[in-house]
Computed example of a mutant assay.
Amino acid sequence: MRVLLTSLPIHSHLTPAVAPLAQALRDRGHEAVIATGPAMGHLDHTVTLPDVPAPSDFGPPPWIPERDGVLKVPLFAHDLVVKAAANILDFARNWKPDVILRETNEYGGQIAAEVLGIPHALLEIAPFAPHEIPDLGEQMDKVRARFDVSATEPSFTAGLTPPSWHPSQHHYRVPIKQETWEKAPEIVATFGTNAGLLMSGSKLPHLVVEALGKVAARSVVAIGRGDWTGPRPSNVRLEPEIPQQQLLGTAKVFVTHAGYSSVREALTAGVPMTCIPLFADQPRNAARVEDLKAGVSVEVKGLTATVLAERIQHVLETRAYYDKAEKFSGEMAALPVFTEIPDHLVSAV
Rank of each mutant, 00 (worst) to 15 (best):
P240L: 01
I242H: 02
A251H: 11
K252W: 13
K252F: 13
L238G: 01
L247R: 11
G259S: 05
A258F: 07
P272Y: 07
H257K: 11
V236P: 05
A269F: 11
P233Y: 11
R264E: 01
P231E: 05
L248C: 03
R264P: 00
N235E: 06
T268W: 09
G230Q: 04
G270D: 04
A258D: 03
L267V: 10
I242S: 06
A269M: 11
N235R: 04
V271L: 14
L238I: 03
A269H: 10
A266M: 07
P243S: 01
P233F: 08
Y260G: 01
S261Q: 11
L267F: 14
G249C: 04
A269D: 05
L248F: 05
R237G: 00
P233K: 04
L247K: 10
L248V: 11
A258Q: 04
T268Q: 14
V255L: 06
R264I: 00
P272G: 11
T229Y: 00
L247A: 10
P272C: 10
L247S: 06
V263P: 00
P240M: 02
T268K: 14
A258E: 03
T268H: 14
K252N: 13
G230K: 04
R232Y: 15
V271Q: 12
H257S: 12
Y260R: 11
V271G: 00
S234V: 06
T229Q: 07
A258T: 03
T274Q: 10
S261W: 00
E241N: 05
L248P: 05
S234D: 14
A266C: 07
V271R: 12
T256R: 12
P233I: 05
F254L: 04
P243A: 02
Q244Y: 03
P243D: 05
V253D: 11
V271Y: 06
L238P: 04
V255A: 05
R237D: 15
Q245T: 09
S262W: 03
T256S: 15
Y260V: 00
Q246R: 13
V263L: 11
A258P: 02
L238R: 02
G270H: 07
S261Y: 00
P240E: 13
E265M: 14
R264G: 01
T268V: 08
R237V: 15
P272H: 09
N235T: 06
Y260K: 08
S234R: 12
F254P: 08
P233L: 06
Q244R: 13
L238D: 08
G270N: 09
T274H: 09
V255C: 02
A266P: 08
S262M: 07
E241M: 03
R232D: 13
A258W: 08
E265L: 10
V271T: 15
S261G: 15
R232V: 12
L248K: 06
G249Q: 13
